[in-house]
Amino acid sequence: MTDRPDLPPRFRAPSALTWVLVVGFAAFFIQGLIVSEVALDRLVRGAGNLVRFIGQAVPPDFSGSLNIADAMLETLNIAVVGVTFGCLLSVPLALLAASNTAPNAVVRTIARFVISVGRTIPDLIWALIFVVTVGLGPLAGILAIVMDTIGFAARFYSERFEEVPKGPSEALTSTGAGRLSVIFGAILPESFASMTATSLFSVEKAIRSAVTLGLVGAGGIGVELSTAMRLFRYDQAAAIILVILVVVVLFEQISSSIRKRII
């Protein structure tokens, strides 16, 4: 037996809030299980269907490879054009949103709001909105990628601006330089490496989303994929999925090797 009264207890009862959260989460989880009818026999049947799908998909049908290549090129175009505009627009927005570069609190709040709207609305929904406004095709996809990139890149840029050490910008301020000169002379150069890394991440992300944008008619290879699926041409669909896989992996490899080199 110990005789120390100040020994910490082995277990401390969780707070009331923790209980409420845990019980609430558990209830929601169980309700979800019941509503979506997760049952073993359905999973088993699903596995059977999956085998049938794979059976029809193998061997993949590459007869339409010219079409696939064309659609893939369009996907890459959407991604690259969209991400470029997205990153370019993100820089001024991020400067307006970062606490050390924003001209005043009102502008900063508005800029933050714009950025968070870009981020909280998913890319597919942006694509739906732009399909309605500019019509079917790659332009809708490009605009969707622009919005999605702003939500992501502008946020990380502005966080980086806020983390920049104050010293160099104070030094430039003390020479009598104006605000913009200080931002472009000290804060942007200091953030450059991190901004490049963020931009490359955006490119990866854009290619992944550009692939799916076609599902709602916003151009690119997703259009081909959804057509093939709807016509039950699983062998063609398999060919498209393989091409997507190869291209996305390739791009991620290239971008991560560039990122390693600059950091």
Binding site: G167, T175, G176, G178
Partner: peptide, 28 residues
């Protein structure tokens, strides 16, 4: 401020820029 030079303990050079560019920024 322009008429007042300031030398800092932590130098406060912009780390990503060359010495030459850092000196040029003094004229801002």
């Amino acid at each position: 401020r322009c008429s007042m030079g300031y030398v800092f303990q932590q130098f406060n050079l912009v780390p990503q820029l060359s010495a030459f560019q850092n000196v040029l920024l003094g004229a801002m």
